[in-house]
């Protein structure tokens, strides 16, 4: 254990001893403890192993098609003049779709909106996720039930949660919030007209705080209690315990949450469609929503495809980081 790198120890992962490449140690606690005392519990790679190609082929083949065909088509359309409403427009467009898009102010506004939405929701979910993980780490009365209530919003379908907030809570006439502010003499906020982006952020954060909490609560269970005790004996209390022991332990799970959420948050769609439809003006038009507008309302296949390529590039930057993080976990 002493030789295990710190970051791996925090993850509660043991470095598995490596023999020659064709021996692989089992993963379970039993086999790895056997391996430690010297029993060679490894699986020899033998010639009678099933042909894994045939077993992997359906999954790999289908995913390959799923990835390559639409992607190639998007790329191809993005260089075409192609509008479903006007069949007379056709032919090779060169970089015109891109040129038009990049000069189109709404594109930049929508990228800005996307970043604001993703950034705000991420910060909110991380702050509350860490808070909940710490609070729920130790027993209190009815903790398990309270935990179920905290994670519940994650399982609510996006259209339902959008409509709960839109009709029952944020509605300027009959909503609960309007009644509360009116009773307090503060007047009424028409949420989706006056603070559209903040409203969307609240809804989406409400849906994703449970995700961050769930992951971070699980991660807290692998926190080394002896290490905490040692820190306690060294005089660490409350905040310093949190800052020097808990937070470093949560660092990697947090990065996993950030990256996975980013992928899903870049694709937020239903919440916007149901509440603001991208408005007022283009105040809540994200890149995803812009592509939907171009493709399925304006039928501008070329322009929508070019915007799709931009969305793919944006997501790929994120994906590169995610793959690296997960890969580090896979490597022994």
């Amino acid at each position: 254990m002493a030789t295990t790198p710190f970051c791996l120890r925090l993850l509660n992962l043991q470095r598995r001893p490596r023999k020659r490449a064709n021996f692989e140690f089992g993963h379970s606690a039993m086999t790895s403890s056997l391996a430690k005392v010297g029993f060679g519990v490894f699986k020899p790679k033998d010639s009678r192993a099933p042909r894994t190609g045939a077993l992997l082929a359906p999954a790999v083949g289908l995913l390959l098609i799923w990835m390559i065909v639409p992607l190639t088509m998007t790329l191809w359309f993005s260089f075409q003049r192609y509008n479903l409403q006007n069949p007379l427009i056709s032919g090779f467009a060169g970089f015109n779709n891109y040129k038009f898009l990049l000069l189109y102010k709404t594109l930049w506004i929508s990228i800005g909106n996307t970043l604001v939405l993703v950034g705000s929701v991420l910060s909110l979910t991380i702050v509350f996720g860490v808070l909940f993980a710490v609070v729920f780490d130790e027993a209190f009365f009815g903790r398990n039930i309270a935990r179920l209530l905290v994670i519940a919003p994650f399982f609510v379908m996006p259209t339902v949660s959008a409509l709960i907030w839109k009709n029952l809570l944020m509605h300027p006439v009959n909503g609960l919030f309007a009644w509360i502010t009116r009773s307090l003499g503060l007047g009424v906020v028409d949420w989706f007209a006056q603070a559209p982006m903040i409203s969307i952020i609240i809804i989406v954060a409400w849906q994703w705080i449970p995700f961050a909490s769930l992951i971070l609560m699980t991660a807290m269970q692998s926190l080394d209690r002896e290490q905490m005790e040692a820190a306690y004996l060294d005089g660490a209390r409350g905040l310093s315990m949190f800052w020097f022991i808990t937070l470093p332990h949560l660092f990697r799970p947090i990065s996993v949450v950030v990256m996975i959420e980013t992928i899903f948050l870049l694709a937020v769609f239903a919440e916007i469609l149901v509440t603001t439809s991208g408005g007022p003006g283009n105040a809540t038009t994200t890149l995803t929503y812009l592509i939907y507008l171009k493709a399925l309302l304006q039928w501008d296949v070329g322009g929508a495809s070019a915007a799709g390529v931009i969305a793919i590039i944006l997501a790929n930057v994120v994906a590169a980081f995610l793959i690296r993080t997960v890969a580090r976990n896979l490597a022994d």
């Binding site: 359309f77 870049l266 694709a267 493709a295 799709g308 997501a315």
Partner: peptide, 10 residues
């Protein structure tokens, strides 16, 4: 990681 919206059109 491929955003769904990127392949919506095709």
């Amino acid at each position: 990681m491929l955003p769904a919206v990127g392949v919506l059109v095709p």
